[in-house]
Amino acid sequence: MAGTAVLLASCSSAPPPAPEQPRAAVVQPAPAEDPVARSAQPAPAMVIKTSAATNPRAYRQDAAQHLYALNQERIWKGRMPPLLYAIGVLQVEVDGQGQVRNLSWMRAPRHAPEVIAEIERTVRSAAPYPVPARMGKVVYTDTWLWHKSGRFQLDTLTEGQD
């Protein structure tokens, strides 16, 4: 029986070689950021504009231009259609550093609470506003003309309505 086992063992062929596995690429870790080098780089300068307005009506023009510059893709181009989704009149208090201190609705579009929230978010996120240098602080009022698409115009810079 031992002879049969030896005979059978000599008749079998070697198993085929295992298929070659793809080699994993060796990835070098990114070099750690040097906090000293990072702090040595100058931070981008934030340009805060100054308004020469001497009254709230004149400042309203500067504030509207500031809002338009930051929301170019959301501004309704051309004359607005006759039926708007919402119209709101908002009073904004801006301090001596251009920060929004208070928002007060004189006429809120209560039928569209999402518009109220979006206008408030837009106004607050646009800070700092041009610094009201000649007034110290300012409270100005503007009317928001809101289309159902989410685009808007401010009455101060409106192109009119059909």
Rank of each mutant, 00 (worst) to 15 (best):
Q41G: 11
T141L: 04
S149G: 04
R23T: 15
Q41T: 11
I119V: 11
T141R: 05
E93V: 09
P44D: 07
G78T: 02
V123I: 11
R79M: 13
A126E: 01
P29W: 02
Q153F: 03
A133Q: 06
L154T: 04
K148Q: 11
I48V: 14
A117E: 08
K77H: 13
V47A: 09
S125Q: 15
R60A: 13
V94C: 02
V36L: 10
V123N: 01
P15A: 07
A2P: 14
E73W: 08
R101L: 06
G160N: 09
T156M: 11
W76H: 06
E114V: 11
E20M: 15
R23A: 14
A14W: 07
R23G: 12
G88Y: 00
R121Q: 08
S104W: 10
L83V: 14
P42I: 04
F152S: 00
E159D: 11
E20Y: 12
I87N: 05
A133E: 06
T156Q: 10
A53G: 05
G136C: 03
K49V: 08
E33W: 11
A58Y: 02
P132N: 04
V94P: 00
D162S: 15
A117P: 02
G3S: 10
Q161C: 10
R57N: 10
Y85T: 08
P19G: 07
N71C: 04
Q72E: 11
I48F: 07
A63V: 03
A45C: 08
Y68C: 07
A5W: 14
M80D: 04
P113N: 04
A112D: 02
I119T: 04
A108H: 00
I75L: 05
A69Y: 08
E93F: 08
R79N: 12
I75F: 01
S51K: 00
L70R: 10
Y140C: 03
I75E: 01
V26C: 12
G136R: 03
L145D: 04
D142Q: 04
A40E: 13
S125W: 10
V139E: 06
Q161E: 10
L7M: 15
L70E: 06
P113W: 04
R74M: 08
Q91G: 02
P44T: 06
A5C: 14
V139C: 05
I87S: 06
A24C: 13
A9K: 09
Q153T: 05
R74A: 07
